[in-house]
Design a protein around this nucleic acid. Structure first.
Length: 478
RNA sequence: CGGCGUGUGGCUCAGUUUGGUAGAGCGCUACGUUCGGGACGUAGAGGCCGCAGGUUCAAAUCCUGUCACGCCGACCA
């Protein structure tokens, strides 16, 4: 083993999970760091994943009536300040623009940390009658939050996301939309990203600044830490009142409309890495793999090999598979390792021996399994294989998540679980924020959500012993 | 914002303790041999040592300041 290999090798998860994560991000060629802390370059391999996420999520949005819009990236200070809880929540982390060219601005503006206030300002002009409702808008953009500690994908100062903002005539309709969009996220995570999630409601302590109710999907990473992977808020009519948005209803009276917002971010890429990745690098579910199949020619200088590789590529492409041939001058071994680090779901090896036998070697990234396949059956074989990789990955992730989910029936059990295990712990809670604070202080564990599927696993609160009100998923979180 | 750490060719780092005018491996370029799990040989190119002051005959090395990045905590998608 040369020294270089040691240096370049990906740190094992076991040894140092944080370092493993960083190594994978770099070795899979997803991003580059820049001269601005917390702002990263999305390299082609990283951005292509985001594009696939966008495309498939946007399709799901459109299917439920969402229309895309685009609002400015600047928010005047006076606008940001209109809703009290909201500004208090975001003030510590906004970036300010104070000058236009050389001239100081009359009023400083922040770079949007989120766009509720802009949407409200906009709705104020758009909504006058019940006939103008609902508005089901979304925008794909980036936002800025001046985080102190940053990590690629998980927490950056500028991040890409989508933010949906809707406005409705009734509270019921708003609540319905809030839940509907949470379900869209949950379905997307499972079906596209192969990441199982827990759906539930945030406690008041954890809810969004200005929201009446915040719902969340929570995923569990390989190291047993939780990651909030999508969020949906019901604002009630709080923002409408703060921004004085009113409409005339059918009964000819003025009413305040009800609003929602929901968002998901490039953090999903971090989730992909930490749910599916292994010590060889990234493992991508086929649906978000920019390259689904890589063809590695062996002895490519030999006549006929590259031609055969190209023919297979054409056939796979014709079957709708995103495919590439790696005809670079690296050795086959190099190409195998490279394809693995990048998480390409399927690798096809084709060399003189295969051509003679009329077969190719097919290797799957998720299990490492290798098989022979007749060349004339390759398109249907790879297509089927991609489908099973997609579903197997979800099943494996679900199995691991379930194995790392525990139930505590008593305080002793709760403390014991968090001192020995990492993962979700399901336990009862009295509903008092004091207990949440105490648990956080003692164990650095937070309430992830109150799952929709409630179950009384005990009668008393796991912290104070008073009568229990809610089952909560607890965990250490990113 | 607190604690710790790091800034030296594209990358990873040595050299700093004890000042003497910059090294290695990888990568890159060319040619040749290779090619089924990170191939090898030969010849090359490439660095005002993060930045600014100071001490000194002399600073990558010592002193002061500053900037940036990384990790851990608190805060947050």
């Amino acid at each position: 083993m040369s020294e270089k290999k040691q240096v370049e090798q990906i740190t094992s998860m076991e040894e140092d999970f944080a370092q493993w994560y960083t190594d994978v991000v770099i070795k899979a060629d997803l991003i580059d760091y820049t001269s601005v802390k917390g702002c990263m370059v999305f390299k082609p391999a990283g951005y292509a994943i985001w594009e696939l996420i966008q495309k498939q999520m946007d399709e799901r949005f459109k299917q439920c009536g969402v229309e895309n819009v685009y609002l400015p990236m600047f928010i005047p200070e006076s606008l940001l300040e209109k809703e009290k809880d909201h500004v208090e929540g975001f003030a510590p982390e906004v970036a300010w623009v104070t000058h236009g060219g050389l001239q100081p601005l009359q009023e400083r503006m922040c770079v949007r940390p989120t766009s509720e206030t802009l949407f409200c300002d906009f709705y104020k002009n758009e909504v006058h009658s019940y006939r103008d409702l609902p508005k089901i808008y979304n925008q794909w953009c980036s936002v800025v939050r001046w985080e102190k500690e940053t990590r690629p994908f998980l927490r950056s100062r500028e991040f890409l996301w989508q933010e949906g903002h809707t406005i409705h005539a009734t509270a019921e309709e708003a609540e319905e939309r809030t839940i509907q969009m949470l379900n869209v996220y949950a379905d997307f995570c499972e079906q596209v990203l192969a990441i199982p999630v827990i759906k539930g409601r945030k406690t008041d302590k954890e809810k969004f600044a200005g929201a009446e109710a915040t719902y969340t999907i929570e995923a569990l990473m390989h190291d047993g830490k939780a990651l909030q992977s999508g969020t949906s808020h019901n604002f009630g009519d709080g923002f409408a009142r703060a921004f004085d948005i009113q409409f005339t209803d059918k009964d000819n009276t003025l009413k305040y409309p009800f609003q929602t917002s929901w968002g998901s971010t490039t953090r999903l890429i971090g989730a992909l890495i930490m749910v599916h990745g292994d010590d060889s690098g990234l493992v991508l579910p086929p649906k978000v793999a920019p390259v689904q199949t890589i063809i590695v020619p062996v002895r490519q200088q030999q006549e006929g090999v590259l031609e055969k590789a190209a023919a297979i590529k054409d056939e796979l492409a014709a079957a709708g598979i995103r495919v590439k041939v790696d005809d670079s001058e690296k050795s086959p071994g190099w190409k195998f390792a490279e394809a693995e680090m990048r998480g390409i779901p399927v690798r096809v090896e084709i060399g003189p021996k295969d051509i003679e036998a009329g077969t190719a070697v097919i290797a799957r990234r998720d299990t490492g399994e290798k098989m022979q396949c007749p060349i004339d059956k390759i398109a249907e074989t790879v297509k089927k294989l991609l489908d099973s990789i997609q579903s197997d990955m979800l099943e494996r992730a679900r199995k691991r998540r379930d194995e790392q989910t525990y139930t505590a029936h008593s305080k002793e059990e709760f403390l014991k679980l968090f001192s020995e295990k990492s993962g979700f712990v399901r336990a009862m809670w009295c509903g008092d924020v004091e207990c949440e604070n105490e648990i956080k202080e003692k164990l650095s564990v937070t309430s992830r959500c109150m799952p929709f599927e409630q179950e009384m696993v005990a009668d008393t609160c796991v912290c104070c012993g008073r009568p229990a009100k809610k089952l909560v998923y607890w965990g250490r979180a990113y």
